Computed example of a mutant assay.
Amino acid sequence: MFKLAAITSAMIFSLGISSVSASAINCSQTLDHTPIIKKVIYFETGQTALSTEARKQIDQLVDVVTGNPSLKICAVGQADKEGDPDANKKLSLKRAESAKSYLIKKGIEKKRVETVFRGEAYGGFSFWGAADKKDEDRRVEIFAYSE
């Protein structure tokens, strides 16, 4: 499973995602470093609000990065392949921004976090054609890494 997650992460970063942050962080490019911590949060169809479980996952990431101010954070928003592709791009952006807002609310400096969006997921589920797992494509992957 770990190898699949690492491969999926590399594919996500190398398959044309769009950045929405003007910060010095550039997580729209393939990360050369292994993430220190990675959390994946999931969303209901058409939703951008963080669930209680999503907030718990982000809180665990915050616990790691708070004491390590040199770590950068990248939030990659994704949607499943249902519906209009343009609407899915906007939805994936809003999901990533929702995660970023929560990180900032928890005390992480805004300049440490970049959001990018994939629109429809290439992730480990849609990419491999497992249509029965499209609920797992509605996600934000949050990586903390050092440069």
Rank of each mutant, 00 (worst) to 15 (best):
A130Y: 14
K81A: 12
V140G: 11
L61T: 01
Q29N: 08
S9W: 00
G107N: 07
T52H: 07
S9Y: 03
P85Q: 10
L15G: 13
K110S: 13
W128M: 10
L91M: 06
L15M: 12
R55M: 13
R138N: 09
G119I: 10
R95H: 09
Y145T: 04
I108E: 08
T66F: 02
D63I: 08
P35S: 05
A130L: 15
A144D: 10
V65K: 04
S98Y: 03
L4P: 07
D59P: 00
I36Y: 02
L31E: 11
G129C: 07
V116E: 09
S51L: 02
K89I: 04
L71G: 06
K134E: 09
A22I: 06
G77V: 09
A96Y: 08
A10T: 13
S19G: 09
A49P: 00
V113A: 05
Y145W: 12
R95V: 04
H33L: 04
A49M: 05
T8V: 11
N68P: 02
A79I: 03
R55W: 01
A5T: 03
K106V: 05
I12N: 11
I17P: 02
S101T: 08
V40W: 06
W128A: 14
T45S: 11
L103V: 04
R138Q: 04
I25R: 04
T48W: 14
L31A: 11
V140W: 04
S28Y: 02
A131E: 12
C74K: 08
I7W: 06
K133W: 10
A24W: 08
S92P: 01
S21D: 15
V65D: 04
S98T: 07
M11K: 13
Q47A: 13
F43C: 04
K56N: 14
A6D: 15
V76P: 04
A99V: 15
S14N: 13
I37A: 04
Y102W: 03
E136L: 12
D132R: 14
S146P: 01
A87W: 07
E97K: 09
S101G: 13
A5H: 09
R138I: 07
I7S: 12
S9P: 03
Q57T: 07
D84R: 04
A22E: 13
I108A: 09
F13M: 11
S101M: 02
M1T: 13
Y42E: 07
D59M: 01
E109D: 14
A131K: 12
K134C: 00
T8H: 05
K94Q: 15
A5V: 05
D84E: 04
I25N: 10
F13N: 14
S92D: 10
L91P: 01
